[in-house]
């Protein structure tokens, strides 16, 4: 069954320019939106009850020597040593994220399949 071959319209130069810029603006928006709304990055916590000495920070002799070679004192290293990432998260947020990722792939694969059928029939049924 020979189908008619699809003839795409020719795009004007202006249209080509607008299409290029659209993608660029879109990607910049998705980069900056999380930053502007202050939602970027995970939380941090700090360990408590730590004195600002090597012993108080739980550093043994070797660690202590290396810190000093790197140019740190217990005062300057304190911040680095006691800082911890906060890995607590909400289950609904995880569920929403998982849903979005999965839905995205399902949509893309299904839609692609639909378009792919036309490609194959035009390529092999001619």
């Amino acid at each position: 069954m020979a189908k008619t071959i699809y003839r795409p319209p020719v795009q004007s130069k202006l249209g080509q320019l607008i299409d290029s810029l659209f993608l660029l603006v879109l990607v910049l928006a998705s980069l900056f939106v999380p930053v502007y709304f202050g939602l970027a990055g995970g939380g941090k916590t700090t360990l408590e009850n730590t004195a600002k000495t090597w012993e108080g920070l739980g550093q043994n002799a070797t660690m202590q020597a290396q810190w000093e070679k790197l140019g740190y004192t217990p005062e300057t290293a304190h911040e680095l040593i006691v800082s911890r990432f906060d890995y607590s998260f909400s289950v609904p947020a995880l569920a929403i994220t998982a849903f979005v990722v999965i839905a995205y792939f399902v949509f893309v694969f299904r839609w692609s399949k639909k378009e792919y059928k036309d490609v194959i029939s035009e390529r092999f049924d001619r």
Partner: peptide
């Protein structure tokens, strides 16, 4: 997701749009 959950969503929005 643990470290950059919001960015993950923002980026998915980009690819969906």
């Amino acid at each position: 997701f643990l470290g950059y959950g919001t960015q993950l969503l923002a980026m998915m929005v980009f690819y969906i749009v």
